[in-house]
Amino acid sequence: MGTPAPARSRAISLEVNGEAVEYEVPARRLLVHFIRDDLGLTGTHVGCDTGNCGACTVHVDGVSVKSCMLLAVQADGTRIATVEGLAADGELTALQRSFNEHHALQCGYCTPGMLMSATALLEQNPHPNEDEVRVALQGNICRCTGYVNIVEAVVAVGEGTS
């Protein structure tokens, strides 16, 4: 087999929220646009489009990444989870219920990214303290500055009080 020739587009196959997906995508398409525009999963938001705000956070092979800083072709062969995949069976996760109970959102724009970052944290560290939550959410900006309730909601999941 020779060295692969560079191409303007690539046929990618990946798993999105548990479902196999195959698509021909232009090399220049960002993963976030593939998710939103090609797959129609508009829960993943575009906030700053510069890698700062974290509203576009999804999981790629189980780790949180900012989908505006990946090309869709880079996700070929990976397993992706978006915010829509959290309550895939129609039942909210403990984290989502806790966000609801703690009123952990104001305008809601940053919420999908907050949920995906906090979900990744809780998978690695099921009982994080406040400092650990704040470090884990450093890459997610809430422009309403409603961090207090967000942090409380995540800590409460670990404490089992939500």
Binding site: T3, P4, P6, R8, R10, P26, A27, R28, L30, C68
Partner: peptide
């Protein structure tokens, strides 16, 4: 954001990567 058109290659070995980098200005 829409990027400028670009070609993409995914080499399987370091040798392939180096030859791709050398072959394309």
């Amino acid at each position: 954001m829409l990027l400028r058109e670009v070609d993409y290659a995914r080499p399987a070995t370091v040798e392939e990567a180096v030859s791709l980098l050398a072959a394309h200005e």
